[in-house]
Write a protein that binds this DNA or RNA. Sequence first.
DNA 1: CAGGTTTTCGCCTAACGGTCGAAAACGTGG
DNA 2: CCACGTTTTCGACCGTTAGGCGAAAACCTG
Lengths: 222, 222
Amino acid sequence: MLAAVLQVRAGSLQVMLWERAREPHAHRWSLPGGGLGDDEDVEASIRRQLAEKVDVRQLSHVEQLAVFSNPSRVPGPRVVATAFLGLVPSHIDPVVPSDTTWHPVDALPATAFDHEAICRRARNRLASKLSYTNLGFALAPPEFTISALRSLYSAALGYKVSATNLQRVLARRGLLEPTGGTVQPGPSGGRPAALFRFVSGEMRITDPFAVLRPPSARSLGS
Amino acid sequence: MLAAVLQVRAGSLQVMLWERAREPHAHRWSLPGGGLGDDEDVEASIRRQLAEKVDVRQLSHVEQLAVFSNPSRVPGPRVVATAFLGLVPSHIDPVVPSDTTWHPVDALPATAFDHEAICRRARNRLASKLSYTNLGFALAPPEFTISALRSLYSAALGYKVSATNLQRVLARRGLLEPTGGTVQPGPSGGRPAALFRFVSGEMRITDPFAVLRPPSARSLGS
DNA sequence: CAGGTTTTCGCCTAACGGTCGAAAACGTGG
DNA sequence: CCACGTTTTCGACCGTTAGGCGAAAACCTG
């Protein structure tokens, strides 16, 4: 029962880690987690574990990642870990304990056990799902400009995306909705940016894919 | 530790189930599986469990599916199950024990516990991955005609796919390779079909997707 | 009001999938 | 041996989508 909680902070994708005070692996950084209770399923359990670190109501998305079960992944008796991916929208800054801070997933400190591999897996899963689902809503604030969304996607994916194309792709899938509002331009001027929101907070796969689609499932656009 | 082993048999996607002899859920059909040993990881374990039912060397693909952990998923003390998806190519007919037979995933008999949900999940995972990976190699024999491949995909996906389109999509991705051989036409005549193979037996994601692709990652075709 | 900045929008192009139909290559029956 | 049916193969066309570019819009400052 482990979770890699990711958030885009200061322009980079970061993961929440806490510093171990005791052996084994003292002073190394590890993912939050804990044991499974008798009357809860794994998702309820990981939410309970995470509650010790953050306000779980701030988690915009939680999903299973994979089971890590190498017998030597931790010293001593074997521990099977069910790893989760958690996401926090970029507009909130959760209050975390003093032993816990955020670290860029592409520049991790010395991590405990196999937690670096789990972080990598979480990052890869997020990057994949950003491309073929509307998971972006879990990284973004309720309202945002296209530029801000572009920054989020770029940070999470690790490469620049075009604002023009991002807007069109999301809009064509019916995921984006203008709120009507705009934001004031910065001190250097520029046209005021329009505000958008994701149409529904619910996780949705964007119509599997163009590939080998069932014959009649076409033109489902609004 | 459970596995839904799927194979296309007689034109439909089927799953390997064994009939429980004892309570609980006697005479209901369940997925093969068993407990995790102390010195093995979950994948080694599921392969060991499956070895009691089939020759594991006939498994062309094994991957983690999800963890099922509802406290009431089985009567008595709670059991956390790590579910796997296994695939067997269509050209082999594994020898299975007398209590074990294949059942179409779309017409399952009375199943034990939550195994029906696990079968559904396995079917969905397979259908998804057929569209954006080369997982087809795990369902197909070493050599095959386009018609045969079309039948496999249609059975696994649950709808007809076009032979022309299937061939072009796979070829454009560099996954398909002609062997040079042909098969004799049937008693009703027809042009002899050319034989193909998948270029590499290794699992490969077909170049994420058109969506939000990194700028320079284009035109990677052979 | 000129010049710089940022966003927005339309246009063009390339690539891909869906579909259709013609052509190829075989068998059978007259 | 030739007409016909059958099955596979291949090319062509079309609509959709993503990538890229640049002009226009809308704001700022000096």
